[in-house]
Nucleic acid binder design. Structure first.
Length: 449
RNA sequence: GUCCCCAUCGUCUAGUCGGCCUAGGACACCGGCCUCUCACGCCGGCAACAGGGGUUCGAAUCCCCUUGGGGACGCCA
């Protein structure tokens, strides 16, 4: 049987890095085994689901290059199907109607908690022959087995078992008939013939419940693989306060998708000492069974390092429009300076991200009057006035305004004045760029024009 | 509280069924080389098996306990 995996986000926000990594792992597992990857949008919560979020997730997937073979399917369009399955379960007695009020259930939960017990539904309506008079619209609950235990072999965590006594009769559908998460997941994974369910490990506790639903449906469970969470630098669950968590924010910040993919795949997975994985390489080597069990901390510095690696390696032409966009975001006109191709070549080795590159290129695309104080103080001294004056004369006579003759010109001045190259180049650098760090002086001169 | 799960350098990790580990690589950090600055590159350094018991000739690797962390316990997903 071929491998079929899925990514099933709920459209209640942007695609965050944790979800993106789960998606990447699922995608990789399918690609590695020549299987299919399906995308399903879990939008049963009509209240919280938004069109903007749906689009944001799709954009994120596309940017990362995670293409899907089927979907996107929408749970909101499958309500009749869920309804049908529910009816069947009711008929077969694997599910039942529960007329308990919310108040009763809440009170029960509180009481059990207070007694130091695990809050579980007590099965009050489990064997009701008929609805009590004046009862509200019922919820539908699963008739969970009373004893025995559920075991499954997780592809990353290994064998996990939970006693049925720990589980209760979970709600499958609300009074208005809308299905709940644990139920729709099971029906969908079944209908979509998913063979490998790869998801965050916050779902391991849901798995035994889902297996019981599956059994009630007379079906066999798929293979489960729960991947550990991604934490923030402080060890707490990654969230907005840790900085950017939206994948598309990284796009905005000048990161390359291949860098993000490479970074994400190494979070919880590795192959010996290898650090650099292009898409082909990860498809060739990845397997969920090799994923680690411990959560990992998102490290921004390493992402930047990888991004710089890919910026250096990328085809320059691809970087040009990305740099242009970053310049525009800074109100700089890409046409007001040297050709983008030249800027990219000069700066790619010293820019971890395209955003850094745009910052480093500022003086090339707009006039500046803000000299770095330190640099100006150190280099634009009374003594350097003569040097700069002489440079102006010599450079003024350079016919071919390109790196080589410019380099010769600067060296000539240094020779004439019997100064080390640094004594000439550095004041010049500050004079034309306003800063102490730029590409080699000849390249910088050529760029400035 | 109750269940489930996790635990190697600051961080990501290697560590094939216990011996090749005086624990390897990468990021970050610190030094040096290169050099007109910055960066790249190269060389070197700092730095970890959470603690305690077992099992064994031998344990980072197996077992138990402790501690610490996470997750779940919803008519959210």
């Amino acid at each position: 049987m071929s491998v079929r995996t899925r990514f099933a986000p709920s459209p209640t926000g942007y695609l965050h890095v944790g979800g993106a990594r789960t998606a990447l792992f699922s995608w990789l597992q399918a690609r590695r085994h020549g299987g299919e990857f399906v995308l399903r949008i879990e939008d049963t919560d009509l209240e919280r689901s938004t069109e903007a979020a749906r689009q944001a997730i799709l954009d994120g997937m596309q940017w990362l290059g995670l293409d899907y073979d089927e979907g996107p399917y929408y749970q909101s369009q499958r309500f009749e199907r869920y309804r049908y399955v529910l009816e069947q379960m009711l008929e077969r007695g694997t599910a039942y109607r529960c007329y308990c009020t919310r108040e009763r259930v809440d009170a029960l939960r509180e009481e059990l908690m207070r007694k130091g017990l695990k809050p579980r539904y007590d099965g009050h309506c489990r064997d009701l022959a008929a609805p009590p008079p004046g009862a509200p619209e019922p919820v539908i609950r699963l008739r969970n087995p009373l004893d025995g235990e559920v075991r499954f072999r997780d592809q990353v965590f290994g064998p996990i078992s939970v006693s049925n006594a720990e589980l209760d009769d979970l709600v499958l559908a609300r009074p208005d008939g809308t299905p709940t998460y644990n139920f729709t997941v099971v029906v969908d994974d079944l209908d979509m013939r998913i063979t490998h369910v790869i998801r965050g490990d916050d779902h391991v506790n849901n798995t035994p419940r889902q297996i019981n639903i599956l059994r009630a449906l007379g079906a066999e469970p798929p293979v489960y693989a729960h991947v550990p969470m991604i934490l923030g630098e402080d060890g707490a669950k990654l969230s907005k306060r840790h900085g950017a968590v939206s994948v598309m924010q990284y796009h905005e910040d000048g990161f390359l998708p291949e860098a993000m993919r490479n970074y994400l795949v190494r979070l919880g997975w590795s192959h010996g000492d290898e650090e650099i994985f292009d898409t082909e390489r990860m498809i060739e080597l990845f397997d969920v069974t090799d994923v680690n069990r411990a959560a990992s901390v998102f490290n921004h510095d390493k992402l930047r390092w990888l991004n710089q690696h890919y910026v250096k390696a990328a085809d320059g032409a691809r970087l040009e429009p990305l740099l242009a966009r970053q310049l525009e975001k800074r109100d700089l006109d890409p046409a007001a300076g040297p050709p983008l191709a030249d800027t990219v070549e000069a700066l790619r080795e010293r820019a971890p991200t395209l955003a850094d590159m745009a910052e480093a290129a500022r003086y090339l695309y707009a006039d500046f009057d803000d000299f770095e104080p330190q640099a100006a103080k150190k280099n634009l001294t009374v003594g350097s006035g003569a040097v700069l004056a002489r440079l102006r004369e010599v450079l003024g006579s350079v016919a071919d305004w390109s790196a080589e003759p410019l380099h010769a010109a600067v060296e000539q001045v240094a020779g004439e004045l019997d100064l080390r190259l640094g004594k000439v180049a550095q004041p010049l650098r500050v004079a034309i760029s306003g800063r102490a760090a730029t590409p080699p002086i000849d390249v910088t001169l050529a760029l400035v024009g």
